[in-house]
Amino acid sequence: MATVQVSEAEKLYVLHGVRDDLRVDGRGCEDYRHVEVETDVVSNTDGSAKVSLGHTNVLVGVKAEIGKPKPMVPDEGYLEFFVDCSANATPEFEGRGGEGLGIELSNTLVKVFSNKHCLDLKSLCISPGENCWVLYVDVLLLQCDGNLFDAISMAIKAALFNTKIPKVHICEDEDGGKEIELSDDPYDCVRVNVENIPCIVTLCKIGHRHVVDATLQEKACSVASLLISVTHTGMVTCVRKVGGGSLDPESIFEMTETGKRVGKALHAPLMELLQKEESLGSKRQKVGFLG
């Protein structure tokens, strides 16, 4: 569920645990929960990934469509984000209940991912000023147990890694008329370079220390949290304070350092996993939700 009620005693218990680097579920402060990643789970998308982080469960589908480039940047394609907080995750999201959270999440995702430093947007351009690829990145929340951002960012990176954009070429005749032609070979496709795509690390300040990958329960005990997006080189691309409380500059600095360290370490195993899955090709037994 999106929110949990925590009693004072529980709060104290969590707080003391964190102080001693021992969290309720036995993890240390900088440990992630068990992560599972699987790509290519929805066959009619151009790329998809399913990520579960403890009980948090997200599914990301990427669809490539041909659109018009934005007038300010005529030689670039762009990404569109949509977060569907589905009622499957919690009854609170029923009807329009999830809309607020969905907008908040997608706005943050735009800030973090839709810039030329993290993706080569120029490679999405088909013909400058006229056609470009628009990648619709649709996030579906299936179950929430805290730390949505981290899970979503991993899923997006995995889904973009998995994305195969059909190859098109432009036929141009003498009079400048252009037509987009689709390659006849289904194997003929373009991949997205995901190397520089950052992962988000959310740090929750609990007492005087901070933890990564907070569960809902831990989050309820925290004053405020900090969201940092980190690339594989350890470069920080975005920092945001989220939540109701306040943070002092010093702890923000400390949290940033932790975030950098943890974030950097997150990329390597993720990429390794994705490469391994990719190399199996069509031989891989797809698990999806049936496993």
Partner: peptide, 15 residues
């Protein structure tokens, strides 16, 4: 088995 055909611009059809 999955057979993919792309028709129109960008529709991915899976049958």
């Amino acid at each position: 088995f999955v057979k993919k055909t792309r028709s129109g611009g960008i529709l991915k059809v899976v049958r």
